[in-house]
Amino acid sequence: MYGKALKPLSLATVATLSAAYALAFFYAPNDADQGFVQKIFYLHVPLAIVALGGFIAGALMAIGYLRSGDRRWDMRSYVAIHLSLIFAVGALVTGSIWARASWGHWWVWSEPTLVSFLIVFLLYACYQPLRFAIEDPERQARYAAVFAVVAGAFVPLNFLAVRMATPLVHPRLLGATGSLPGAMELTFVIALAGMALLWTTLWKYEMASKAASMQLRSLRRKLAARVEGVSLGGPDGADAQTRSAAPHSPTPVRAPAEPVEL
């Protein structure tokens, strides 16, 4: 079900990203101040925005899980946060390179956006250790969802706190896109769209893979049950057949083993 639109989506991603970076290199003018280095802006800012958006999306999907109890929402939230973490690493690395090139330092504490981003990254880096330190799958999903919601609420508050603490030297993009020259703005918007498409495509790929391996596991389990039924002979075989006719559920629930009366 996640595999449906993968091909057109992948093609659209490749096309948009290629167009964005072709525009960045051949169409958008060099920055008057920073020169060629400023081109990293078309990579760094979309990465950062999409990573933050992904964290928020992960929090919303976690709310979906807490409200519905449907394990698929938990899986979506997990994949969203895990992908956004990777994008966040990309944003931190490109931001650091940009800072080095334009201010001469790899890390600039007076840049609130970069600092807040690091704090948010450190918090989300805790998501997987927390998740995989819990054994029971149902509790794992629930606790991870609570963490995702808490961290989602933390993101804006943290940005406010760090922004209050620092004099503003960072180019403020979200409020100031209007002041970009037209050619730069167009390139930026296309790069942002391409990055968002990339995130969505990767998210769908991972969801498709997760759904497929879950389905495979449930089929294997059914097969094992049937083989057992056949080797035992008798009515168990019929039971296995009715079970395999049941609609696929993404999280196969095995009935607890009943004590055998001797």
Binding site: I119, V120, L123, C126, L130, F147, F154, L157, N158, A161
Partner: peptide, 9 residues
């Protein structure tokens, strides 16, 4: 791991 970033503000 979780407390330190959360308490930064």
């Amino acid at each position: 791991l979780m407390g330190l970033p959360l308490l930064v503000p």
